[in-house]
Computed example of a mutant assay.
Amino acid sequence: MDFIDLYCGAGFGARGAVAGGGVARLAVDIWQAATATYQCNFPEAHVITSSVDDVEPRRFDPALGADLLLTSPECTSHSLARGNRPADETSLETAISFMPWVDHFRPRWIVIENVARLRAWDRYASLCDQVARRGYEVSECLLNAADFGAPQARKRLFMICGRESSPPTVDALYPVHAPRRTARDIVDSDGTWRTTPLYSKRRAEATVERAERAIAELGRGVPFLIVYYTSDRAGGWQSLDQPLRTITTVDRFGLVTWDGNEPRLRMLQPPELLRAMGADRHLLDVGSRRDKVKLCGNGICSPVMQRIVECLRDIDNRVAREAA
């Protein structure tokens, strides 16, 4: 199943698609760190560093993308993570900017990934209508990566669109008999990374307060994660025995470990975040540490896309058998 990957990021979604039987043929993203990482992982793909709007799809053989089009438009302006900042309409418009690619390639399948709040966008109905008018049936699937074997609780909307066959529903994608993985599965506990004392003069008071709430709940000597940039009622921390909470584009997780009776702190590192994306075999060697954190925060958990592509291939195979 050949696929084209728009807003491809570092290729975590593509990693899942390849595991599900796909082949990356063409990928586009505006961020050089993302495309360099993608090219490193998928050397057979033609990778373009550019805005999707600035690439003319008619440059390419339409047969190149006849199977599957993946697109992950910018989600910042749809997400609660932007806080009180006003939505950027240019960013919002990326959700429909892939239509010329659909018109040129006419793929059998389209998979659109975004935050769940995309459905609250005042042009969401128009997006669905534009896809439907091109002959596609749309299945809206809200999927949590933790249910597919990723050690991260990451809920995302996947609009799975089929032109020649009905797309799989949520019920068809579930159940997945994958082991329930947790944050404990991703952390390096062998002393690889340098830690500093939790109680230091330079430590922010809010950080210490988060940690003390966790210690009061768990007891001393139990490792846990501090969760920054959160407005929920979980106290600003989480147990290692739950899937990691959603990775964002900024450093969000501090790991508290113990040296005897002394708590020590460090931030989770890119290799650990990579495991949380379910992309353990992915290469993440391009850019700064901050770039790598952002690449993970912008990505799609690989096991989810693997399951989707496996389902699409199963449908194609069934149709082919029935036609034979």
Score class of each variant (00 low, 15 high):
residue 66 A to L: 15
residue 159 M to R: 04
residue 247 I to S: 12
residue 9 G to D: 06
residue 111 V to T: 06
residue 274 L to C: 05
residue 116 A to R: 10
residue 17 A to I: 08
residue 209 E to K: 14
residue 147 D to E: 14
residue 27 A to S: 09
residue 112 I to R: 01
residue 305 M to L: 15
residue 173 L to G: 00
residue 130 Q to F: 10
residue 214 A to G: 13
residue 41 N to G: 02
residue 131 V to I: 12
residue 225 L to R: 03
residue 139 S to P: 09
residue 205 E to F: 15
residue 174 Y to M: 14
residue 297 G to A: 05
residue 299 G to T: 03
residue 21 G to R: 06
residue 172 A to E: 13
residue 179 P to H: 09
residue 302 S to R: 00
residue 299 G to V: 05
residue 42 F to I: 07
residue 186 I to F: 00
residue 34 A to P: 07
residue 256 V to D: 04
residue 295 L to Q: 09
residue 107 P to I: 09
residue 18 V to E: 11
residue 288 S to P: 07
residue 283 L to T: 11
residue 182 T to Q: 01
residue 255 L to C: 08
residue 24 A to V: 07
residue 201 K to P: 08
residue 210 R to A: 11
residue 132 A to N: 12
residue 99 M to C: 05
residue 85 R to C: 02
residue 149 G to F: 01
residue 234 A to E: 14
residue 75 C to E: 00
residue 259 D to G: 00
residue 258 W to V: 04
residue 63 A to Y: 12
residue 206 A to F: 15
residue 103 D to S: 06
residue 257 T to P: 00
residue 191 G to T: 04
residue 116 A to N: 08
residue 201 K to C: 13
residue 86 P to W: 02
residue 200 S to K: 02
residue 160 I to M: 09
residue 2 D to R: 11
residue 7 Y to Q: 09
residue 80 L to S: 13
residue 28 V to S: 09
residue 117 R to F: 06
residue 4 I to H: 06
residue 56 E to T: 15
residue 195 T to A: 13
residue 25 R to P: 03
residue 91 S to M: 07
residue 314 D to I: 15
residue 288 S to C: 08
residue 67 D to I: 08
residue 93 E to L: 14
residue 136 Y to H: 04
residue 211 A to T: 05
residue 119 R to Q: 13
residue 269 Q to M: 05
residue 173 L to N: 01
residue 305 M to G: 06
residue 3 F to M: 03
